[in-house]
């Protein structure tokens, strides 16, 4: 069974049914401090799990953005980049898992305040996978969780990303129709836009989304 080092952001984190060591840190920790703390930890976790809950502040007009968004983002960034640095120092491969509520993809399920944090974390996760590249021994996977999902099912999917390191593992509350509904207005707006001037060749784009490199499709 895999052993995970877990950073928790939020109070409603689902259990993944695995042995976990909790990463404790001061609320006002800086990125540098978090990186150093991760790099100095004893032992050898099988993976690093950033686990995020879906509950957040409701009102858009009476919100402490630093507390709700900027600080947790800072914690996440320090943790995951510290984990990659540690794995590189040890000359080893490994897995960084972002465990995010399905609302990171389907935003209408959470408050706008929480949605900002979740989407920024989703961007961070996709970008880390892009930066590390498909040839790296260090991988990043994004596991979405549903509020209705049981520990056994979530644990099964987390175990699966250890084997396959796929880019996304979707919870059952995310389906084709919802994904198409999110992207349709975006693509319609693009289709209503004219072509810009031709640009110099800047190389391949969106490589991280290549279907040949995202890993197993069906979970």
């Amino acid at each position: 069974m895999s052993r995970l080092l877990i950073m928790e952001l939020g109070s409603d984190i689902p259990s993944v049914g695995m042995k976990v060591d909790h990463f404790e840190f001061p609320r006002d920790a800086t990125i540098t401090q978090l990186r150093q703390q991760v790099q100095a930890l004893p032992g050898k976790p099988d993976g690093y799990l950033l686990a995020v809950g879906g509950r957040g502040h409701d009102s858009i007009e009476e919100v402490d953005w630093q507390h709700e968004v900027i600080r947790p983002l800072r914690h996440a960034f320090g943790f995951v980049t510290g984990a990659v640095r540690r794995l590189r120092e040890q000359g080893e491969g490994g897995l960084i898992i972002f465990l995010l509520p399905s609302a990171a993809l389907i935003p209408s399920r959470v408050s706008t305040v929480r949605s900002v944090l979740l989407r920024a974390l989703l961007g961070m996760a996709e970008a880390l996978r892009a930066e590390l590249g498909s040839a790296s021994a260090i991988n990043t996977s994004i596991v979405f969780h549903a509020s209705c999902e049981g520990e056994a099912e979530l644990g099964r999917r987390v175990s699966q990303v250890f084997k396959l390191a796929q880019m996304y593992s979707l919870s059952t509350d995310i389906d084709e129709q919802q994904l198409r509904e999110y992207f349709s207005p975006l693509l319609a707006a693009i289709d209503a836009t004219s072509a810009g001037p031709p640009l110099p060749d800047i190389g391949p784009m969106a490589v991280v989304y290549d279907l040949n490199s995202i890993g197993a499709a069906h979970t």
Binding site: L170, D175, G196, L211, I214
Partner: peptide
């Protein structure tokens, strides 16, 4: 948006998600 040339890149992301949902 400022340029419709970005469409294939966004479609690539959508399709990666659809494939992960078993829909491609």
């Amino acid at each position: 948006f400022t340029d419709n040339g970005v469409r294939p890149t966004l479609v690539a992301r959508r399709d990666a998600l659809l494939a992960s949902a078993g829909a491609l």
